[in-house]
Amino acid sequence: MRPPQAAPSGAAPRRRSGVPPLRAPLWALARGVLLLCAVSVVVFAATSLLPGDAAELRASPGATEEQIRALREELGQDAEPWRLYLSWVGGLLGGDPGTSLVNGRPVADAVAQRLPATATLVGGSLLLAAPAMLLLGGWAGSARRGRAVPTALLTGGAAVPTVVVAAGLAALLSGALGWVPAVSLLPPGRPPIQSPELLVLPVLSMALPTALFGGGLLAGAVADVVGRPHVADARRRGRPPWAVAAVDVLPFLMAPFARVLAVAAGGLIAAATVVETLFGYPGLGSLLVSSIASRDVPVVQTVALLAAAVVLAGLALADAVAGGTDPRRRTW
């Protein structure tokens, strides 16, 4: 038993920022924009460091230096990298992320075409993984004989590479049981949600590791909350376990849960690159993979920035949720 405390352990006065409340969202926004700028510079630099550029990869084997130079000029890629970067940023600020260096089509079209497919995948995985990670975290965090073993199981499970999980699930659900197809070719002109059988494998392959990972992270938070006096108190007063979980534990988990979800969303976007390629599912992940291979910088930049924006927005949202749901700050 822990020594009795006057207040829940987490209730040390929160660090109050010196910024007046109204300016906080502005500050968050500015921070987000700065982070996005940093991300775009890093992505641009990383793509520039890869050997070869779009002109070299588009030229056929045997093209002369001169031909490649002409092609580079035609693609508008013959300026210094920083100029290329600034002109791309300039275009983006004006709402135009440029055109593909591979096929000359607007990047915005390519991204818009594939966004629904990946959003469905990530959204579906989150819907599945979110309750699962609460349950797993609850199980591991409140285990009677300590949480070392369950947490190890969760962490170990989460460490299995996505590609292995996906291959295993495909072998089981498609190969052995024959329940769902092993590939997910979306029928042309139909939204992905109308082909649920094609979503099963990719969504499960992404949701399963995410649930384990999230469960592992939440286990610690659950253990903290469960160890607090008010929980022990509620138990002593004979409150049934489900009510303890719902009333005394869950509200305290909302803040860490929201943050874990935001981080998980980032992980899901990364997992989408693997899963989409594996199942032939036409989303942003596979677009990113092949655009990197063809050094299609405007597409790589746009997709990467979009992914970063989603993660940052998720984290900001999580902060807001955390602030709003902290039971100790409840004002209503």
């Binding site: 959003a119 939204p191 949600i193 949720v321």
Partner: peptide
């Protein structure tokens, strides 16, 4: 009810996502 915001948001995202693609014609 605010903690539902996240889920509502996610469901909205999925629905919007499927809606975006619904413009194509049938098979």
């Amino acid at each position: 009810m605010r903690r539902q915001a996240l889920f509502t948001g996610l469901s909205a995202m999925v629905l919007a996502a499927s809606g975006c693609a619904a413009s194509g014609d049938g098979p």
